[in-house]
């Protein structure tokens, strides 16, 4: 473990150096996950930076990132391992040609390491890769209960059994980040194996910090207004609130359009970057956009 992970403060600083602004509680959760070598279960609305945690940790710890995107029906052959059938067939032909096909260990040879295709979970616990990687199990809520049950086994012992080869065990467990958008409740048994953290929408200060860190080229006034505008939207009654990812998309869009500050027409035209439901856009467009912008302009001036 690199020396920078000696304290929560050090971790916090290292995260923000890598342009990830984490509040104290998230930094604590990550710190504990690293120290106790336990998986970290991150839950929160879409676009609050759950996946980003894994990416930034991989950069920070200088370890490879292995990502497993979950979906219903995810099975062993896509998540753990698969045999390379084409090569095995070829090998049989070769052995036949060489007359060794009837040898006692021909089958053993066919199911050796050489013909094994490693999928993300196996890669992550196979210690021959050198440093243990950062394993990102993304959107676990999309997988089904069968996969969850399997994952439970892997996460408790960090070992996987391939019947033809034997048990593969991680010398040092990988850093595991599990994320969920909560489109269904993940089973308690799995959550119990992990440290749990709920990532909320960021405060104004935090989001402003994120925008400055991620979009350094943005004009200051625009950045301030964009963040204030999004914060305003989150306080209103919308079916789907915009996440930090949407804020960043929006400010990038406005920068691309050479905007220095928010103008009503441009906001109305680009609202689709921020809001993804027609009802929500209709609710905000026009009158309330104008009101919010007027208010923000005054606030910004009094702030200066």
């Amino acid at each position: 473990m690199p020396s920078l992970i000696r304290s929560i403060d050090a971790l916090s600083a290292a995260l923000s150096e890598n342009s990830y602004i984490a509040d104290r509680s998230l930094a604590t959760a990550i710190f504990l996950a690293l120290k106790l070598q336990r998986p970290l279960f991150l839950e929160g609305e879409a676009g609050v930076g759950k996946t980003e945690v894994a990416k930034v940790l991989s950069r920070l710890l200088d370890r490879p990132l292995i990502r497993l995107q979950c979906y219903e029906g995810l099975d062993v052959s896509t998540a753990v391992y698969e045999w390379n059938y084409t090569r095995q067939m070829l090998q049989i032909r070769l052995m036949e040609a060489a007359g060794t096909a009837r040898d006692h260990n021909a089958v053993q040879e066919l199911f050796s390491d050489e013909f094994l295709l490693r999928r993300p979970l196996l890669q992550a616990i196979d210690s021959r890769n050198g440093t243990p990687p950062v394993l990102l199990i993304d959107e676990l809520d999309r997988a089904d209960e069968e996969f969850e049950a399997f994952l439970l086994e892997v996460l408790s012992d960090f070992q996987i059994t391939v019947p033809e080869i034997g048990t593969i065990r991680a010398d040092e467990p990988p850093v595991v980040i599990v994320t969920s958008n909560r489109t269904r409740e993940v089973h308690d048994a799995l959550k119990r194996r992990c440290l749990y953290h709920w990532i909320d929408y960021p405060s104004f200060e935090k989001e402003y910090g994120i925008v400055l860190a991620k979009v350094p080229g943005a004009p200051e006034q625009l950045a301030w207004q964009v963040v204030a505008f999004v914060q305003e939207l989150r306080a209103s009654e919308l079916y789907k609130l915009p996440g930090v990812a949407e804020t960043l998309d929006w400010i990038n869009a406005l920068v691309a359009l050479d905007q220095e500050e928010l103008h009503e027409e441009v906001v109305n035209e680009t609202l689709g970057v921020l809001l993804k439901y027609r009802d929500d856009i209709q609710k905000v467009q026009g009158e309330s956009v104008r009101q919010i912008i007027d208010r923000l302009r005054k606030e910004y001036q009094s702030e200066r």
């Binding site: 219903e72 029906g73 698969e82 045999w83």
Partner: peptide, 20 residues
């Protein structure tokens, strides 16, 4: 219909692992 598949003699997809 779930996306998960189970061995079935009259299934619509080849199970390569078991076939092999």
């Amino acid at each position: 219909r779930s996306h998960r598949r189970r061995p079935n003699g009259r299934g619509d997809q080849l199970d390569l692992r078991r076939t092999f």
